Simulated assay, not measured.
Amino acid sequence: MRRALSWLIFSLAVSVVTTCAADSGDQRSELINDRPAPSVSTFCVGRFLIDVPQGSRLSGADYKYDYLQIERPEPKSFEDFHREFNQKEARLKAEKHEKDPSLLRISRTPTADSRVLSFWKFDMSAGLIEVEGYRWIDGTQYVLKARAGTSPPVEGTISREELILGKMEKALSHLRPRLDTEIPAEPGYCFEGGFIASPEWELEEAGIDIDIAGHPDAFVSVWFYPLHMSRHDRPLLERMGGVLQFLGRLATSVRVLRSGNRQVGPYRGQEHLATAPNSGGMRGHSFIWETEGEGTLDTPALKIELTTGHRDKDRNPQKTKLTDEQAMKLWDEVLNSFRVRPTASPEKLLHRDPPAGMPQPAETPQSGVAHPAGSAS
């Protein structure tokens, strides 16, 4: 997902001072001509929303929910879903472990369309246990992964393995498909192609890249993560000031367009907007806004970036079509749109219609039990 910044100076700068830099279009013709902006595409990531020019597309993503890594959903028949899982289970059972009869430790079938298991990855591994959860819904397979330590549990508590297995089963039971264009009304966590319904904020992370429609050289990145997992030693503006000092004479080619404190909705943060030449000698933009958060689940650290002039798929430098003014206008529109997704009351949710275009409940093959796409236990 992460693409290296194409222009050389800021690539060096960001790699030196931040642990979360994104390795990770025709600016809207109306914008270029100073006409009113067209409609937008809204992306749901985690519990947040952000608007970008209509037609922009998700080009990379990474999602973690309650210690679980969410893999990209994959089209699969119900027969293949069970056949492939059973084959994996059989392979794990057949291979011995130095301390256990086999690599397989636990295998469960919570429902007809979900499976969870824990296993040793190698025959001599003893430090970490792999935990995986699978669910099939209407022709799509969803996979969650995690790791559990093997240290003995504190007296009166369950093992880390059982704790992760429990989280896995709970998340799978509350998971449902989601169209990229669907903005759920109930509280929960959005990821590419799916949604986990949950009124409570868990330990949640995500990072996405969105390619800007009509601009092959431009993309927006959105990140949120628990503060304690990526604490910065200094705020953004202090770090960027140190970058310019570090670059010395090279800093003369960097033009800072705007820099200072900026509040986005309820989030107090800082922004730094700069332009510099890329490796092809063409100027690009690196716009960054971030907040350290407040150390709670629902106030995570946040980082939003707009990058222009990055390399194409063949690694060739690209020239951005956006002037500094147009890039800043686009940035302000995108950044100001970032917000927590509003949710409806439980009473209203009981009577709402399913989202347009969502698959309707289908009878699960073999089991004969109906499993609605939006079901949650």
Rank of each mutant, 00 (worst) to 15 (best):
V256A: 05
G149L: 06
K313W: 12
Q69F: 06
A276M: 10
R178D: 04
E186H: 01
H285T: 05
F122Q: 11
L335Q: 00
I304K: 01
E169V: 10
E161V: 06
T18F: 13
F10Y: 10
E186Q: 10
T323C: 13
Y267L: 08
I106E: 11
P216E: 08
R108W: 03
I212T: 05
G280M: 03
L128W: 10
A197K: 12
L165K: 01
R160M: 09
Y67C: 02
Y63S: 08
H351W: 07
N316H: 14
L172M: 04
F338C: 09
A185S: 10
I158R: 12
F43E: 01
S59E: 15
L49S: 07
G295V: 05
M328V: 11
G207K: 08
R147I: 05
W331P: 04
R178A: 10
V243A: 11
A171M: 03
G55N: 09
G374N: 10
F78L: 05
Q141L: 13
P153Y: 02
A218D: 02
E205A: 14
L244C: 07
L330D: 02
R311E: 13
D138A: 15
W201A: 12
L68G: 07
S11C: 07
K329H: 14
G281H: 02
E325K: 14
P342R: 09
D123G: 02
P226K: 04
M1Q: 10
D298S: 12
K64D: 05
L237Q: 04
R3E: 14
S15Y: 10
R35W: 11
E132F: 08
P199C: 05
A213E: 15
E130S: 13
S337C: 10
P110M: 08
T140I: 15
P365R: 12
I164M: 08
A13R: 00
P187R: 03
P184G: 06
M282Y: 03
E84W: 02
L5A: 09
Y189L: 07
E182A: 08
F119T: 02
T19N: 15
M282Q: 12
L5I: 13
V264T: 13
S375T: 07
F78N: 06
I164P: 02
R176V: 01
E74K: 15
H97Y: 09
K145R: 15
A61M: 04
T19F: 12
R2C: 03
E200C: 00
T307N: 12
C44G: 09
E305Q: 11
T308I: 07
C44R: 05
P354Y: 09
H371E: 14
G281F: 03
E305F: 03
L250A: 13
R283V: 12
A4S: 14
S345G: 11
E71R: 11
F191E: 01
H272A: 06
F10M: 13
S6T: 10
K303E: 09
L236S: 00
Q326F: 07
R341F: 02
S253H: 09
T275D: 11
I183G: 07
I208V: 15
V45D: 00
P277D: 08
A90Q: 14
K93I: 07
R255G: 05
A251H: 07
G194Q: 09
E161K: 00
L349R: 04
R315Y: 15
G269Q: 06
L8S: 13
K96L: 08
Q263W: 02
S56H: 06
Q263F: 01
A356T: 11
L244P: 03
E71S: 12
